Amino acid sequence: MTEILTQINGVPIHKNFVKDLPYNPNLKILLKDKRKAGILSEVIFWKQVRAKTFHDIDFDRQRIIGNYIVDFYVKTLGLVIEIDGPSHDMKQEYDDIRQNYLESLGLVIFRITDFDVRNNLSVVMKELEDFIVWKYGTTPSSKI
């Protein structure tokens, strides 16, 4: 059994650390620019999860993984959170290739829309809770 990271609504959440993720140092310059851009939905989401305020889970903002920069990353869960805004509207093929690559590394992707973060934040946070419980949680009745 893996180590317990936290509990959400009484359900133990198990760590799923993914080791040895590829890193492209050439993206560091882009990373700084992305952070400075201050995309509203990312800033709003960050205020909900920074400094372990969301169930004592540590989130990284703008993390380089391979040749990509993901919006948010939870290292202890191997969880990528992507906020899809208007820039994703015409890039479905690129997003699919990117997601397949990240999943091939053993990462789990949780996608939310820019609109929902700006207009339905409480729903987004509840959906994230439910997703984490579904992917990483065990209830007492599921233990064998």
Rank of each mutant, 00 (worst) to 15 (best):
D84M: 06
L105K: 01
I109F: 08
E82Y: 05
S141V: 12
W46N: 01
T6R: 03
P25F: 04
V117P: 06
Q62T: 09
P22D: 00
T2Q: 14
T76W: 00
Y101G: 06
D71Y: 05
P86Y: 14
Y101W: 06
I13L: 01
G106Y: 03
I83P: 03
G10T: 07
N100K: 15
T76E: 15
P25E: 06
T2F: 10
V74E: 02
N119R: 12
I64K: 03
P86G: 13
I39A: 07
Y94R: 13
Q7L: 08
V43M: 10
D84W: 04
T6E: 02
S142T: 15
D33P: 04
E127L: 04
M125L: 15
Q99G: 07
N100M: 08
A51Y: 12
I112D: 00
V70P: 02
D71P: 02
V43H: 04
I44S: 01
A37M: 09
E93D: 10
K36Q: 14
G106C: 11
L30M: 13
V123S: 12
S142N: 13
N24C: 14
R50I: 07
P22R: 05
R118G: 02
K47E: 10
T53W: 02
Y94S: 13
F45R: 00
A51Q: 14
D116S: 11
M1S: 15
K91S: 13
D71H: 00
R63T: 15
V108W: 01
I13F: 00
D95L: 10
V133Y: 01
G66T: 04
G38L: 11
V123E: 14
L128K: 03
Q48C: 11
D95G: 09
I57K: 04
L5A: 01
L102M: 09
H55V: 08
D56S: 13
I112R: 06
I39L: 12
R111G: 07
